Amino acid sequence: MSVNKIIKRVTTNTILAMKANGEKVSMLTAYDYSTARALDDAGIDVLLVGDSAANVFAGYETTLPITLDNMIYHASAVARGAKRALVLVDLPFGEYQGTPEDAFKSAVRMMKESGVHALKLEGGVEILENIKKIIDAGIPVCGHLGLTPQSINKFGTFGVRAQADAEAEKLKSDALALQEIGCFAIVLEKIPAKLAKEVSESLSIPTIGIGAGNGCDGQVLVVNDMLGFTKDFKPKFLRRYMEMYDGMVEAATKYAEDVKSGNYPNESEQY
């Protein structure tokens, strides 16, 4: 008689314990059920349903156009595919920058309709009350500082953030404030490695870096970038583990040739 293997779910407590034990946290984005299943089987700790779906799935230049309904759709698919990983999702632009009550309503709707485990929100002290309202309701929140893509029109560039002393000091104080109100982790995006290491060492909650060096408590990449599916995106921090775009072009070319030659389907592939 076969015995089903018991899969222990990664939780926010797991992530906090990993920081305490010096174990790095692995995080990748996911936007669909099949990818979520594969990454879950690979043992990835956290699957981030990023608003980067606006870029890699819909072809927008920024993350701003994606809606709450869009994000719930992607998050629901990932939640169904992940049996072990903690599923974290971005609240999209415009859903939490208003009043604390508006942010709370968006957060509740996401949690109820998608089945995810936690939310990620961009920003520091400017939205502190809104984040606190969500956390006080029992919803786990991961912060996001540094390059915050939802603010791209304010920044005007996707360049490295917090290189100037004033911005670096604000980032450090924002990180402490997010920890103080109960965030369980903070993503640090595209900031100097020295600063990211300093922030990480000052916090009891884990930091997850993307373009922020090796001093963070974990790392995250957009899965399409990591797999080489986004052909022309080549930032300094990106390590490609596959060349999926080239492989897909090669496979599709061969498929088209086999169809046109009559080689597909062959006798063994027919009923």
Rank of each mutant, 00 (worst) to 15 (best):
E250S: 15
V249E: 07
N263Y: 04
R109K: 11
M27K: 00
L178D: 09
L188E: 10
D45Q: 03
P192W: 03
Y245M: 10
L171M: 08
P192Y: 03
V56D: 01
K154R: 02
T63C: 03
E169T: 14
L178K: 01
Q97V: 14
E95G: 06
E129S: 15
D232M: 09
N130T: 10
T207N: 05
A79P: 05
E169R: 02
G59R: 01
V125W: 00
T62R: 00
L86S: 11
V10S: 06
D102G: 08
V25R: 00
E122K: 04
L147S: 05
S2D: 13
E126Y: 10
G143P: 05
V78E: 05
K236S: 15
P140R: 00
E243P: 06
I127P: 01
S261T: 11
D258I: 12
M110E: 07
M1A: 14
I210Y: 01
A212G: 05
F104N: 03
G50P: 05
T11S: 04
P140T: 08
M111I: 15
G123F: 02
K197T: 15
L91V: 14
V25C: 01
E180R: 07
F229S: 12
K236G: 15
L119V: 10
L188D: 14
R37P: 09
T148H: 00
V125N: 00
N214S: 13
K234Y: 08
P265I: 12
T62V: 11
P65F: 04
M71I: 12
D69L: 02
E101Y: 07
T157G: 03
F93S: 05
V89C: 10
Q150K: 07
S202N: 09
A30N: 09
N13M: 07
I15F: 02
Y60K: 04
N21P: 11
K172V: 14
T157F: 02
G59Y: 04
A38K: 03
Y31S: 08
E180T: 15
K254G: 12
A53T: 12
G182I: 13
A58L: 08
T12Y: 02
V46S: 04
